[in-house]
Write a protein that binds this DNA or RNA. Structure first.
Lengths: 212, 212
DNA sequence: AAAATTGTGAGACGTGCGTATCATAAAGGC
DNA sequence: GCCTTTATGATACGCACGTCTCACAATTTT
């Protein structure tokens, strides 16, 4: 089990049965998750028609599995950036890009949130296994990019606060609250998030103007 | 196992070993959860010094356990109401009341969210046990009360949208994002949520004025 | 082609959760 | 006081997860 080789396995185009089986499992897991279910390692093994033992060799836990699928689902979102000078346009663009993707992989992102909650609980209890800790911090950089045009217009502390507030209207949590609690459709949820995001940016701008 | 009696058990002041044991377990579970851990039924049994079998009689699953603890933690929040004519004051008051409580019972509310995610996943998979479904819809009524003073000033659709947007900056999800992802303190998180809430209300008001 | 390496499958094992059974102890009714 | 009802504890069971071992098959190396 060469570690350095395994790390690059996803990036590099490798041949051989190793890469093939891993890819098969990842695709199977992704497909299952997009269909809404959050499969255990055993379930992916069965669906991919490999033995349980083999499955556990590639993904030692459900956490590792979800982690890998999330990384794939996150792809287009992480690559996002905007060069618009208008923060409002940037945030609208980000939401228009990311939210539909999150909605498409809703089960995956919910599973990721669930896992991070599990890990948080285990950390509190002290019984923190040496699992690969979940990150879930991507929105920070994205939103710092969104608020970048406000540099010079809005003081740094307010920009930071705005980015933090925006992170509340951007992510799976939004879908959970608006779809599951309020019963909205994906489109309505998206539109509420967009309205809220614009309101927050406008408020930050107006506040900065008033102080100037 | 009289069902109607068991339902009222928490409300009524009952005597006898039944109510006593249940209360003992609930208090133990609450204490454990406030200390940050999310105990299984077995763990509560051990901590309360009752047998596993007995514990399962009162709380057939961890879900039932969390549900009961959440109901207790939710107490002061559900009783909240305001008669201020100013929506801004109402929302600030609600946040000032509810968020510290949620923060205090952070582990409990996170466990509740985790359970609701589990149930959502099971529902998607079709393997939905006949567990007592989690609600998580309390914020709807609270926020409808918050936006009530805007009746006549802000059109109903906008009021609804405002309430939905406010529900994004009010709840455990806020703590998860701001504390766990951004690394803020509870106080900073609270202050960001308050700023965002005010920004949303202001925006709705301003928008209504502009249209009038 | 033969040997060494690597991937795979079958099965056993330990653990924790939830369920069921049964005997004992405690409470309430007469 | 005795008897019925009810609560409790001990134990065992099935199940799923994760780990481990070992034999076999596939691939690569020589």
């Amino acid at each position: 089990m060469d570690v350095s080789r395994q790390q690059n396995e996803t990036a590099r185009i490798e041949r051989g049965p190793r890469a093939r089986t891993r890819k098969l499992m990842l695709e199977t897991a992704t497909r299952l998750m997009q269909s809404g279910i959050t499969p255990s390692v055993s379930e992916v093994a069965e669906a991919a028609e490999v033995s349980r033992a083999t499955a556990y060799r590639y993904f030692p836990s459900q956490a590792a599995l979800v982690h890998a699928v999330v990384d794939e689902a996150l792809g287009p979102i992480l690559g996002w950036s905007s060069d618009s000078p208008d923060a409002c346009i940037r945030v609208a663009d980000l939401l228009a890009t990311a939210m539909p993707r999150i909605d498409e992989f809703e089960a995956t992102f919910k599973a990721a949130l669930k896992l991070s909650l599990e890990q948080w609980a285990q950390r509190q209890a002290g019984t923190l296994g040496n699992e690969p800790l979940f990150k879930r911090g991507h929105r920070v950089d994205l939103l710092k990019c969104v608020t970048a045009p406000l540099q010079g217009t809005v003081p740094p502390e307010s920009r930071e606060r705005l980015a933090q507030a925006l992170s509340l209207v951007f992510g799976v949590e939004v879908l959970i609250v608006l779809k599951d609690i309020w019963g909205l459709t994906s489109e309505s949820a998206q539109s509420v998030a967009e309205w809220a995001a614009k309101a927050l940016v406008d408020s930050a701008l107006r506040q900065a103007e008033g102080e100037a």
